[in-house]
Design a protein around this nucleic acid. Sequence first.
DNA 1: TCAGAAATATGAGATATCTCATATTATTGT
DNA 2: ACAATAATATGAGATATCTCATATTTCTGA
Lengths: 223, 223
Amino acid sequence: MEIYKNEKRKRYLEDHSIAHLFSFPIVEFVEVREYKRDEWIIQEGMRPDFLFYVIEGKAKIYITHLNGKVSLINFINENEFVGEMELLNDVYYTKGIQATTKTVCFALPFHRCRAQLLEDVVFLRELTKFLSVKATKMAAKYSQTLAFPLENRFAEFILQTADEGVYKEKHITVCDFLGVSYRHLLHVLAQFCDKGYLQKEGRHYRIIKKSALVELAGMLRIE
Amino acid sequence: MEIYKNEKRKRYLEDHSIAHLFSFPIVEFVEVREYKRDEWIIQEGMRPDFLFYVIEGKAKIYITHLNGKVSLINFINENEFVGEMELLNDVYYTKGIQATTKTVCFALPFHRCRAQLLEDVVFLRELTKFLSVKATKMAAKYSQTLAFPLENRFAEFILQTADEGVYKEKHITVCDFLGVSYRHLLHVLAQFCDKGYLQKEGRHYRIIKKSALVELAGMLRIE
DNA sequence: TCAGAAATATGAGATATCTCATATTATTGT
DNA sequence: ACAATAATATGAGATATCTCATATTTCTGA
C-alpha cells in the first residue's frame, strides 16, 4: 500500500472531489491510498480504522466460513464506501476486502471524523442511499440463489461481465461469487458451449447466442 | 386494516413514543394502523405511500419469482421500519409485506414527511443503522446459504424459533424462508428425529438433543 | 530460466435437493 | 355440521451440485 503525498495527493483530491458527500470540509482529513492488485485493503476479522471511498479500481468482499468455504459476497466499484459497517456498528465481524485491480481510495480516519460524520445530514443521506441499494441487491441475490439453478445466475453473470461479447472471468472467482463448486461451474459452462451459446477461444468464451443467455438471465428479473 | 382514532390512537402514540427517532414533531402526521393476521400491509409490486414503523406484532417480506417460486426474504419485528426503500429510492420493486400476527404500526405519509425526513439527522442516523444491520444480516444469510447444506441452517432456525424447547413453525413458511422444497425439509426433519435430536409430539417437535443442533448451527457462526 | 504455484480441465461416484403424485389429517367459513 | 381449503405426510425417481482424484497448462518469483 502506498500513501500519496503532496502534489500527487493534491491532484487526486482535486480531480475526484468528494466534497458533495459532506457538508463540512473533509479534505484535510483525507489520506489518499493506492493498493496493488490482490492486496488486502481490509483483512478479515481486523477492524479497520478508516472509512474508505473508492476512487479508482475494483475490489471484492470476502468471508471465510468455518467449514473452509470462501464466499465472495460482492464486488465493490468506484464511488462506493468501504468500512461503513465498522463506522456504524461497534459489534461487527469485519469482512476481507481485496483489491481486484490497482485501487485508489480516500481514507478517512474514524478517530478524527466519526463524530462529525454521524452528525452530518448530507453524509448520512448519501450513506443511507448507498446502504439501501446494497441491502436491496443483497436481498435480490439471496432470493435468486434460492429460487434458481446455476444456469440462470451464470447466464446473467456472463452477460454482465462480458467485454465486447467475450467472457473472460477467472473460474475460481466466479465459483466463489456464485457459490458453486469449480467442477459444477465448468460443467454448466461446457453445457453452454455444447448448446452453442458460447464458443471457446483459448481461455476465453465468445458469446454466440446471446438471446439464449438473455432468456436464461431474464428469469431472474423480478417483476 | 383498521385505523385507530381519537383515544385509542392517542394511547398508542403515548405508550409507544417514537419521538426519539426524529428531531421534529412527528405525532401529528402519524396514522396508527392495525393489520390482522395474514393481511397484506404492502402488496407486492404496489408502491406504498407510507413509511411504516412496527409497534406490535410481526410480519414477513415476500417476493415472487418469475418461475413461480416464492421467497420469504425476512421477518420484520417490533421497532423496525417498513417501506424505507420506497422512501429512499424512486426506482424500486416493492416486495410484499404480510402480517404474521395482528400488527400495529405507525404510518407516516410520504407526501407530507419525505422532505423533512431526508433532512433530519436523527432520523437518518437511525435509518442508517437499521439498514446497515439489515444489509449485514442479509449478506450473512446469503453466504451461509451458499456455503452450508440445509441441515446446518435448519438447526439454527429451530434453535432460534423454538419455544420452551419445542419447535412449532409451519413447514411451508420455513420452506419459503430457507429456500428449499417442502419435501426436502421434511426429509431433513425426519433425519433429526431418527438421530434423536428431536422427538415428534403431535404436530410439534421437542428438542431432545440440543447439543447436536447447537453444533450444527455453530458451523454457521462467522468468526 | 526453472521450479513452484495458480489456473484450467475432465472423470466418476456420492449427496443434496427437486418434482410430482398421492393420502391423510387439521382448520375454517358459512 | 359439512364442505372446502390448508397443512401434514410419504414414496420414488430425476437433477443439481459436491467431493475427490488426477493431468495439463499458464503464470510468477528468485
